[in-house]
Each structure stands twice: as structure tokens, then as C-alpha cells.
Design a protein around this nucleic acid. Sequence first.
DNA 1: TAAGCTCATGAGCAATTACTCATCATCGGA
DNA 2: TCCGATGATGAGTAATTGCTCATGAGCTTA
Lengths: 313, 313
Amino acid sequence: MTTNRKLDDAARAAWLYYVAGNTQDQIATKLGVSRQSAQRLVSLAVAEGLVKVRIDHPIANCLDLARQLVARFGLTYCDVAPTDPEATSSTIGIAELGAAEMERWLRRSEPIVIAIGTGRSLRAAVEQLPRIDCPQHKVVSLTGNISPDGSAAFYNVIFSMTDRITARAFPMPLPVIASSAEERDMLRAQPMIRRTVEMASRADVAFVGIGELDDDAPLVMDGFLTPGDVARLREAGAVGEIFGWAFDAEGKLAGSINERVASSPIPDVGRTSVIAIAKGPRKLPGIAAAIRGHLVNGLITDEATAQALLNQE
Amino acid sequence: MTTNRKLDDAARAAWLYYVAGNTQDQIATKLGVSRQSAQRLVSLAVAEGLVKVRIDHPIANCLDLARQLVARFGLTYCDVAPTDPEATSSTIGIAELGAAEMERWLRRSEPIVIAIGTGRSLRAAVEQLPRIDCPQHKVVSLTGNISPDGSAAFYNVIFSMTDRITARAFPMPLPVIASSAEERDMLRAQPMIRRTVEMASRADVAFVGIGELDDDAPLVMDGFLTPGDVARLREAGAVGEIFGWAFDAEGKLAGSINERVASSPIPDVGRTSVIAIAKGPRKLPGIAAAIRGHLVNGLITDEATAQALLNQE
DNA sequence: TAAGCTCATGAGCAATTACTCATCATCGGA
DNA sequence: TCCGATGATGAGTAATTGCTCATGAGCTTA
């Protein structure tokens, strides 16, 4: 509980600093601590993600790019974050927008089913979520959460999500990619898995990441594929993957690995809002293919990526 | 249009600053302006209200309510604890805050006089106090500590306080309410009592509880009043009491019982910080009256009560 | 065209914030 | 009990930010 007490003070200090506009000296006086401690409390609050800053202004260029993407690729939803050309984080900007969009869905009073894929951007977005009490909703994982070594896969985000929101959660106790097509079929046949897959197919909204197929692709990092597997996928024309499903430049599933993918199928954009969260030049081919092939009908990306998508062909 | 363009830049600068974490120097470089201009853009964005900061912690709402109460009722101090809807204790939260505020006063190096009233919340707050060595201060009781049966009144807290802190203590060897106005006057005339009352009137800070006037009011429980007395007080318009002094909805002393109250007068808020510690729906009318009538100028309560106070009228 | 006005700009400086380091207390395990 | 690890603290200092002021460009008006 000592941590709780500390976070309390941190939140208080952050409130006094950011909301009430006190200097850290004033905060120190009010809280009866030294100036340095006040500073530490404020930065603790920031580090813990207690402080959420939102810029309430649709930057014209971003809005414009989003509009163009919607028109050009028949999207139903698109949001574009400003690009910081030298930002070190690969998720900055899109994480905040992703969290905002998730929050809009979660705030709905009528019960909905939210499906969640995998990926670093998605994880970053979920970590930006505030606490929301929404027991009416269900959150269902689109993909397994078991690493080849038996541990929980790092980029599986459903547990991070249920840390913050009080919805019913349906994880998938599976690997992302099984060792063979037969094993995949056997796993899928389990009644509990079947029900989860079924529920995912009827989700109202799905948030997914898009993975590149480099040698340091997330699926390789997590140990599901070897660099050789990825090379064969590329030879088969694959340019990206969405929770394991590899697809080619037209957005058609490609490569024999797909026979071993144990994830739910990608929900149908006719029934579900499938929203991709991804940015960056390395993911560009995958993003382009996914929106061109209508694997997804929503996109959250950044200015540079949006511009690149529009410059293509 | 020029304003629009400017706001756009301001939003972008603010985004780079608050979300992406750039320094204003970096922003200046990226936007191709001078550092000073970058600073101006950021502060313009703030001034225009483009920047919304949210503290994602229960404490945030509390601080906000506290600020509203201060503004609405002209308080000099207010603190609001989070409400735990299923807490069984009637003092949880406010006890900790009360103790924290007491501690802030006690930690001062210059000698002060601290006056203490009565009540369960106050007792709970004192029990949260750490041991503090502060022989420079004086603690003076605002009210008697003798029950009608001659024992020490349970809710008198000055001894609990001096168990923990090494300050000079000035209790009041009196009942809270005398059996007649004459007896009250006689008791008050004793030189020692006179000095104590005099000291209390010059206290720097006073911590008081607010009692409700139900049939199980603390004054009834302690045997000072009969349920009939309380009913008559209510008929006279009284809605609450502070160490014996009953007052009506405007915060004016009300009811003939006040002629028999042997406690010190409630210190003047012009000279003393009079801080009430109270929460709960049953005490709500009393709290509202006390702050509206400026019997107190400080309040420690919980979220639910704070909200209810603000919702009134 | 010149005077007067507004407003943007950058220099310089003061205030504020962030970081580093040395010290000290606390705590769990040998 | 001692020891090392961990974490909290305050001093000192570097980095960053906010403010003021003088300058000058651009624009309006006499």
C-alpha cells in the first residue's frame, strides 16, 4: 500500500502542477515536502502514465490527410497524428489516438464486443487508456497469448486492457502459430476456443496491429517463426501480417504459414469495424496492402505514413 | 485565416512539447522558428485552451471538488478524500486527510496554538497521527471532557492527541453541557477555565467535528442530551452541532440548549482557521449550514459529500 | 510620404525545472 | 548481528522555460 500512498501524492502533485498551475515550489510547500521531492512526485506521475495530455485541435494537415485516405481507400474511419521526425518511440502519437478511439467505443452504454489483436502499437495504445468501468462490454482476444516457450506472449494486450477496464475478458490460451496444420485444427476444435472465435467474428469493433515481415518481425522476436519462415513468406508475396495472418500486396492471404495460424480469422469489415494502428516506413507495404485489400476499414497512423500512402501509385 | 494558421502551428508545437516531449529548442528547429517563438506558440496553445491535461487518478476528482467548494463557500482550506462506496467505516479517508493536515500544522517550527473539538471523525484523525515531537506548540481543548456520569467523555480527543505528540495540553475539566445556564456560568467563571477559553479564542487553528441531531446523535449517546432535548432543538431549527453549539440552516446558533453549553465559543474564522472534519449524508445539513454560515472556513470531507454540497440549491 | 500604430521578433536575464551525486535510513538474508 | 541492496533525501548545478524590453517590419492614416 505504500506505493498507493505514493501514487496518491504523485497524482496530487501532478494535479497541482498541470491543472492548478502551481510551481513545484508551491507544491512542495502545500504538500510539506522538499522541492526536489515535489519534482520527483510530478515526474513519477508522468512516468506512471497518470498524466494524459490531449491537444484539442485538429491540426489541419492531419485532418486533411485523414480525409483523403478515407476517400481514396474507402475507409470508414481514419485518424492521423502529427509526425515528430526524430521521435525515438515507434508508437508516439498513434498510441494516444488509438486510446482515444478505444475510449469512444468503451464509453458506449449499449453492450458491445471489442476484439483485440496484437502488436507494439496496440499495446502502447492500451497503456494510454484511462480506467473505465464498463461491465456491459466484452473484450475478446483475436489471437493466442502463449509463447513457444510457454510463457505469456509479451505483445498480447488483453490483460493490459483488463487491468484498466472492467469488462469481461476472453483471452485465447493458444500459441499464435501452431507447429502444424493438424495441431492448429485440433486446438481450434476445442469448444471453449470455438466459442471465443465465434464471438470474435461477431465483434462490433476490432483493433489490430500490422506487422512487417523483416528478419526482426515481431513474430520472429516472439519465436513463432524463424527468419527462414519469414523469407519464404516474402517469396510467396507476403508483405505484412495481422495477428499472424500474412497477406500479399493485394491484401490476399499468402504463404503456407497461414495453415498453421491459430488466431481467429480477421473479422469481416462488412460486420465489424476493423481498425489498424500502425505507422512507419517499414510497415508501409503492409498498411497499404491491408487497406487496399479491405482487410481493415479503419486506420490510425501518422502524417508521414499517411502522406506516403497517398503518394503511392 | 492567419489566426487559424497560427493556431495550427500552436497545436503542432504543443503536441511536440506535451505529447512528444520535445524541448522548445527542438520544436523551434523542427518548425523553423526561433526558440522564443516556439515558446510563444506553446503558451498560445495553452492560453487558447487547446491543451487539456487529465490526471487519471481518483484523487483528481477530489481536488477538483475541493477547489469548487473553496470558490463557492469562501473557504480558505478544503480537502476531499476519495469515497469508497462500500467502506464500512464512517471515517475512512477523512481521518487520513485530517491527520495529514494536523501534521502539517504540527510540523511548523514556530509555536502555534491548536484547538481541538470533539467527534468520532476527529478522534479517528488523531489516531492516524504519527508521533511528533513538538514541544513548541500548545493543544487546547475547545470542550469539556467529563461525561454526566463523571467519567471521561469518550469522544474527547485531547488525550489521544497528547499520547502521540509532545505538546503542552490544555484540557477542559467540564461537562460539554451543564445542567443549567447558572451552572454553566459558574463553571466558566473559574480562573483556570477562563484562561483555557481565552487561549482557545486565540488559537491559530481549530479542528472540529460536526454532529448531526438525530436520536442517536453523539450528544445523546454521551448522555448530555435526551432524545426530547434533541427533538426540541430540531423544532427550533437546529440542523447540526459543533462541540455542543447547535445551529440552524443559516449557521446561526439556535435552541435554548446553547445557554447550557460549557464549551468555549467556536473560534472566530477571522482569526483562526476553523477546520471541520465530517462526511456522510446524515451530517450533510449540518456541514452545509456550518460552511454557509462561516462557522468554519476549512473542510475535510469525502467526494460524495462534497458533490452533494455542490448540488445543493 | 511621413507619422503613428500594431505586432512579430530575438536578445538577455530571471525563474523554474531536471538531473547528478553523495549520504542516510530501511529491510531482508546470510 | 552484520552486510549489501534498495530506495529516499537534499545539495548543488545544468538545462530549460518564461518574461521583459528594445527593435524594426508592415500597415494605416493624415
